[in-house]
C-alpha cells in the first residue's frame, strides 16, 4: 500500500547524553517526537538550552513539547508560545532565589530549536529552526551515502558560541528575522538527523574532511554500546564537550514518482 500509516513509515531513535563531567540532571537539551495518523504526520523536535542562561532545561523541554503537540509547521509556531512562556514563568514564581539567581532568571532562559514535520504520505518534510540545532538529510543512494540537505547551517565553520536563541521572555520583533524554514522531499531509506550544535558541527566536519559517519549512523548506531563508542570516539576526535542529542529518523516510505531534487 502506498498510503501506509505514518507510524509504520519512520523509524525514530534518540541518542543523548550530558556533557562529560556533568550529571544527567544537568543535561539541558530536550527532544520530543510524535507519530500520528492525521495530516499532521510525524513531528520531531530538538532544543538546546544555553549554558549561559538559567532554567534553560525547562525552557528547552517546553519548546520541544510545544512543537510536538502543535499542528503548525511554519513560523506561526513561534507566535503561539505564550502558554509555554507562561508555564516557564509559573514554575519559577514564588521560588526563593538568591540575588544572583533572581537576576539571571530575569534575563529569561534561552534555547536553540529545530522542529521537523514529516508528511509520510506525501514523502515530504518541513523544518523550522532558530539557532544552531541542525537537520541533516542523507540519502541511501550509493555506497557512501549523500548529504542532500543540511539546515539551517551547512558547514561546521558556521557554528559559533553565541547564536541567536529563543527566549523564555518575549522576543519582540527580533525573532521574526531569525526564523528559518526549509522543505524537502524524501525517498525510501532516507535518513534525517536532528542534532544539537556540538554533534551537528562534528558530523559536518567529519563529512567535510572526507571521513563521513553517515553510513555508520545508519547501519551501526543502535545499541547503547554503539552510542557510547561513538561518543568516546568523537570526544577523542574533535567533538566539543557539550550535551549531545541526536535524533535519527529513517524513512520507509513508498516510492515517489516525481522527485523535486
Amino acid at each position: 500500500m502506498k498510503h501506509a500509516t505514518a507510524a509504520n513509515e519512520c523509524d525514530i531513535k534518540v541518542f543523548c547524553c550530558p556533557k562529560s563531567g556533568n550529571s544527567l540532571e544537568e543535561y539541558e537539551d530536550a527532544w520530543a517526537h510524535r507519530q500520528t495518523r492525521t495530516p499532521v504526520g510525524i513531528r520531531v523536535a530538538v532544543a538546546d538550552g544555553a549554558t549561559e542562561s538559567s532554567f534553560a532545561k525547562l525552557w528547552a523541554v517546553l519548546l520541544a513539547e510545544s512543537y510536538m503537540r502543535s499542528e503548525v509547521a511554519g513560523a506561526e509556531f513561534f507566535a503561539r508560545l505564550k502558554p509555554a512562556r507562561r508555564l516557564w514563568r509559573r514554575r519559577l514564581a514564588g521560588r526563593p532565589l538568591p540575588w544572583f539567581a533572581s537576576e539571571k532568571a530575569e534575563q529569561g532562559a534561552f534555547a536553540a530549536f529545530l522542529g521537523v514535520q514529516i508528511d509520510a504520505h506525501k514523502n515530504r518534510w518541513t523544518a523550522l529552526a532558530v539557532g544552531d540545532c541542525c537537520l541533516m538529510q542523507v540519502d541511501d543512494v550509493g555506497k557512501g551515502m549523500r548529504v542532500v540537505e543540511a539546515f539551517p547551517l551547512q558547514k561546521s565553520s558556521q557554528f559559533t558560541m553565541s547564536p541567536y536563541l529563543i527566549g523564555s521572555r518575549s522576543d519582540g520583533e527580533s525573532l521574526n528575522e531569525r526564523i528559518q524554514i526549509s522543505k524537502g522531499s524524501l525517498r525510501d531509506g532516507d535518513m534525517l538527523l536532528l542534532a544539537t550544535d556540538a554533534v551537528a558541527a562534528w558530523l559536518l566536519r567529519q563529512h567535510e574532511e572526507g571521513r563521513p559517519l553517515w553510513k555508520w549512523l545508519y547501519r551501526k548506531l543502535g545499541t547503547p554500546e554503539s552510542f557510547a563508542a561513538m561518543v568516546a570516539y568523537g570526544r577523542k576526535n574533535g567533538l566539543r564537550n557539550d550535551d549531545f542529542t541526536l535524533v535519527r529518523v529513517i524513512h520507509h516510505g513508498s516510492p515517489v514518482e516525481a522527485k523535486e531534487r
Binding site: D48, A50, T51, E52, S53, Q107, F110, A112, M161, S162, P163, Y164, L165, G167, D171, S174, D197, D242
Partner: peptide, 10 residues
C-alpha cells in the same frame, strides 16, 4: 573566557 553557549540576544 568561554564557559558555554551564550545567547547573542542577551
Amino acid at each position: 573566557l568561554d564557559i558555554g553557549t551564550r545567547p547573542a540576544n542577551v
